[in-house]
């Protein structure tokens, strides 16, 4: 029986009158690949932000990796994010004036000390050994997403969060990215929480939960 890495109890997040996430109870065992599906505005991104320590819940309890995120200070949350979480964004969010290697090194800088050799090998691992010195503007969407993945895993996070990582990619690139993530998970054994509205992408996970209007409506296991 694997230990639980994410445990929420009555987790709620409201913005003024709008309740983005109704009280939610969720457990994620360590090493699981959880897909979160729902329409836009269904609260799936809110859930991801809460779990990643980017946002604070309005009510309820939230334990991630043994840390009570509600008890952490602002700087404590930042420490939690850099040591525990890696995030892949739909828009990549690479720093435009830094090369691929430097974008990875930026994550190392916030975590501890920059180490160029390690950043290079991380990029080689995601198959970008030939584009180390290119700026994001010179890379294709798939390549940018791979830089984003290298950056997310460089600090060996326990938890990898994906916010529609393939939302802007064509089918071929999507498959490549998902294959890559699967491979990396096998090696690094991190837990994945991936938000998507794409059924096909969700199917890569072990389990899928469906959110609608901030409420967990359905949950299903994938057989793979």
């Amino acid at each position: 029986m694997a230990t639980t890495i994410i445990e929420t109890g009555g987790l709620t997040r409201s913005y003024g009158d709008i309740c983005a996430l109704k009280p939610l109870d969720l457990q994620v065992p360590e090493g699981e690949w959880l897909s979160v599906m729902g329409h836009s505005g269904s609260g799936k991104s809110t859930l991801m932000n809460l779990v990643g320590g980017l946002d604070r819940p309005s009510a309820g309890s939230l334990m991630v990796g043994g840390e009570d995120l509600l008890a952490l200070s602002e700087d404590g949350l930042a420490r939690f994010r850099r040591e525990f979480v890696g995030i892949i964004f739909q828009q990549h969010h690479l720093v435009p004036y830094l090369t691929a290697v430097e974008n990875v090194m930026l994550a190392q800088y916030f975590h501890s000390v920059p180490d160029e050799a390690e950043a290079r090998s991380a990029l080689e691992r995601v198959g970008l050994g030939h584009r180390l010195k290119n700026r994001p503007g010179e890379l294709s969407g798939g390549e940018q997403q791979r830089v984003c993945i290298a950056r997310a895993i460089i600090n060996s996070p326990k938890l990898l969060l994906g916010d529609e990582p393939t939302g802007n990619l064509d089918h071929k690139s999507t498959v490549m990215i998902m294959e890559l993530l699967k491979e990396l998970r096998a090696e690094e054994r991190f837990t994945v929480v991936m938000v998507t509205h794409n059924q096909e992408v969700a199917a890569w996970g072990d389990r899928t939960i469906y959110l609608d209007d901030g409420v967990l409506v359905r949950e299903e296991r994938t057989n793979s």
Partner: peptide, 14 residues
Amino acid sequence: RQGARRRKLLADAI
């Protein structure tokens, strides 16, 4: 072996 832990140790020592 793990880069992150290695860097963390270094940063803490510094």
